[in-house]
Simulated assay, not measured.
Amino acid sequence: MKFIKGHMESIDGVATYPMISLLIFFLFFSLLFWWVFTASKSHIKEMGELPLDNDNQ
């Protein structure tokens, strides 16, 4: 563990990587949240019934 800590401290700008990861995480789930609330109810119903549809076989 000491090797990893020493190695990470030697990288310039290593503190920016967690911030970038947090930003990507926040953007992804914000877009997903937006999509869930703006998706049409008919599309959600159609996708929900898809596993029960036996006409495709």
Score class of each variant (00 low, 15 high):
residue 25 F to W: 07
residue 30 S to R: 05
residue 48 G to S: 03
residue 55 D to I: 12
residue 57 Q to L: 15
residue 54 N to D: 08
residue 39 A to S: 14
residue 26 F to N: 04
residue 10 S to P: 07
residue 19 M to P: 15
residue 44 I to N: 00
residue 35 W to G: 13
residue 9 E to S: 11
residue 5 K to V: 09
residue 10 S to V: 10
residue 31 L to F: 09
residue 9 E to C: 09
residue 11 I to W: 05
residue 44 I to A: 00
residue 55 D to Y: 12
residue 34 W to Q: 01
residue 47 M to T: 12
residue 50 L to G: 11
residue 10 S to I: 08
residue 25 F to K: 04
residue 38 T to C: 03
residue 18 P to A: 01
residue 38 T to P: 00
residue 13 G to H: 05
residue 33 F to K: 08
residue 46 E to T: 09
residue 51 P to E: 00
residue 30 S to Q: 05
residue 7 H to L: 15
residue 14 V to C: 12
residue 17 Y to I: 13
residue 21 S to D: 12
residue 2 K to C: 11
residue 18 P to I: 01
residue 28 F to T: 12
residue 39 A to N: 11
residue 36 V to F: 03
residue 28 F to I: 11
residue 18 P to Q: 01
residue 42 S to G: 07
residue 32 L to C: 11
residue 36 V to C: 03
residue 44 I to Y: 00
residue 34 W to L: 01
residue 26 F to A: 08
residue 19 M to S: 15
residue 34 W to C: 01
residue 41 K to N: 09
residue 10 S to N: 13
residue 48 G to R: 02
residue 46 E to I: 03
residue 8 M to K: 10
residue 23 L to I: 03
residue 57 Q to A: 15
residue 55 D to V: 10
residue 32 L to K: 11
residue 33 F to R: 07
residue 30 S to H: 07
residue 37 F to K: 05
residue 13 G to K: 05
residue 41 K to W: 07
residue 29 F to G: 02
residue 34 W to H: 01
residue 8 M to P: 03
residue 35 W to L: 14
residue 9 E to N: 13
residue 44 I to H: 00
residue 7 H to G: 15
residue 24 I to S: 08
residue 35 W to S: 14
